[in-house]
Amino acid sequence: MILEAVILQVKQGMEEEYEEAFRQASEIISAMKGYISHELQRCMEVKGKYLLLVKWETLEDHTVGFRQSTEYQDWKKQLHQFYDPFPTVDHFEKVHLS
């Protein structure tokens, strides 16, 4: 399992519209192969700042399966207009300590 982590900065005054668009777009991502779960967190200190966490079975499920799909084009169309600057996406894997 990998964790996709994205800091999102939504344009000022568009937060409510973004959250509704994200609710609708969530149907797209949750139907993708390799998708496990996702959550969107709103920052308490900085207005318009969000943290998106998505769990995928493999890195390729996100980078190839989702990002190169026609569904991703719909995701972009619904959400990318809200971001300034455009977000950076990082992927993490669990560290097994024992």
Rank of each mutant, 00 (worst) to 15 (best):
D84Y: 13
H96W: 09
Q24K: 14
I36W: 00
A31S: 15
Q24G: 00
E17N: 14
V89A: 12
V89G: 04
V46E: 13
W75G: 02
Q41G: 10
E4Y: 01
G48A: 07
S98Y: 10
I28E: 01
Q9F: 08
Y50R: 04
Q68G: 05
Y72A: 02
Q68H: 13
H80V: 07
A5I: 12
S30P: 01
E20N: 09
K55V: 02
Q41C: 10
P87A: 05
R42S: 05
S37N: 14
Q9W: 02
S37P: 04
K11H: 05
E57W: 08
Y83S: 08
M32P: 03
T70I: 04
H80R: 09
R67K: 14
T58E: 11
S30K: 11
W56P: 07
S30V: 00
D74C: 04
E4A: 02
L59T: 12
E93V: 14
Y35P: 07
F22K: 09
Q78H: 00
I29H: 02
E93K: 15
T63E: 14
I7A: 08
M44I: 10
L51N: 09
S98V: 11
K94W: 12
Q68F: 06
L97R: 12
C43R: 13
F82S: 06
L79W: 08
K49C: 02
K76F: 04
L79D: 05
Q24S: 08
H96F: 14
T88L: 07
F82E: 04
Y18L: 01
H62K: 07
L52K: 08
V95W: 07
T63S: 15
V46L: 01
H62L: 06
V89S: 10
K33C: 01
A25V: 01
W75S: 02
L97P: 01
R42E: 05
E15Q: 15
F92H: 13
V10T: 07
K76P: 03
E57K: 15
P87V: 03
V64S: 13
A25E: 01
Y72P: 03
H80L: 12
Y18N: 03
Q12W: 04
T70M: 08
C43N: 15
R67Q: 14
K49T: 08
Y50D: 01
K77Y: 06
K49G: 00
M44E: 11
R67I: 06
V64F: 13
Q68E: 15
G13D: 09
F82V: 02
H80D: 10
Q78P: 00
E16W: 02
H38R: 10
L40W: 08
F66H: 13
E45H: 14
W56C: 03
E57P: 07
R42L: 05
M1V: 10
H91Q: 12
E17P: 07
K33N: 12
S69V: 03
